[in-house]
């Protein structure tokens, strides 16, 4: 019996390693940062007293529709491409895309947020399950990007700021389309720098956006501009 198990295990390993070697896997790592420091909201908030007693408590956002292009032509796209990135959970920071056809590419594209047709599709599962806390309840629609925290410049209750950015209907369609030119690399490192984002927001005046609006669309653009790609 043991021998049979051993043979079975051998074939399983052999089969798996063959299938891995046949296709390249592309890993996209998305790291939340604050002035180049990793922003990991593990068990506690991120605190920067030198930034007006800034505390970041929640940072979550959707990355979707990952595509690879060569000279502007689509060569590879991830199926069912919806990823919830959570600063509190490092396991969500890495996305693996199977490149079965060994496509050659020089550009990666993705969306920040969830597109209209997915928003209109009814109840969905996985990272899109409404239990993930990224779906508005009082009205329909996914929250594309969530940032919550406190700062002494916010003259609000508990000095809080809350940004829940979303909206899937014009004129408040908040999704952002991002694109980076890359080498034909298997490891892509992106980071979203919250310090860069917060430098462009006047927190004392703008500290609560929680519904689809012009402000939500404008801030979504700033969030998108805060993504950077780093060299390997």
């Amino acid at each position: 019996m043991k021998i049979i198990n051993f043979i079975l295990a051998f074939f399983l390993i052999a089969f798996n390693s063959t299938s891995y070697s046949q296709s390249k896997r592309i890993q996209i790592s998305i790291t939340p940062t604050f002035e180049h420091q990793i922003l990991h909201l593990d068990d506690s908030s991120f605190i920067r007293n030198d930034w007006n007693n800034l505390q970041i408590e929640v940072l979550k956002f959707y990355i979707s529709n990952i595509q690879f292009l060569k000279s502007g032509k689509l060569v590879l796209e991830e199926k069912n491409s919806f990823h919830l990135i959570d600063a509190a959970d490092k396991n969500t920071w890495n996305i693996v895309v199977e490149n079965h056809e060994n496509a050659i590419y020089d550009e990666v594209r993705y969306n920040l947020g969830i597109n209209s047709s997915t928003n209109a599709a009814g109840a969905l599962g996985g990272d899109l399950d409404p239990t993930k806390g990224m779906y508005w309840t009082w009205q329909s629609g996914y929250i594309n990007f969530k940032l919550e925290g406190t700062s002494s410049v916010c003259k609000t209750r508990n000095n809080s700021f809350t940004f829940h950015l979303g909206g899937f209907l014009e004129p408040f369609y908040a999704i952002q389309f991002l694109s980076f030119f890359i080498k034909d690399q298997q490891q892509i490192n992106l980071n979203l720098d919250i310090a860069q984002l917060l430098r462009r927001i006047e927190l004392s005046k703008q500290n609560h956006i929680m519904s689809p609006s012009t402000d939500a669309v404008n801030l979504s653009k700033i969030v998108a501009e805060s993504f950077k790609i780093s060299e390997n």
């Binding site: 209109a120 009814g122 109840a123 779906y135 309840t137 009082w138 009205q139 329909s140």
Partner: peptide, 16 residues
């Protein structure tokens, strides 16, 4: 008309 799909309708009264 705040809710556009029947599947997501129940979320509104549950969380209100």
């Amino acid at each position: 008309g705040a809710v556009h799909h029947l599947d997501l309708q129940s979320l509104a009264p549950i969380s209100n």
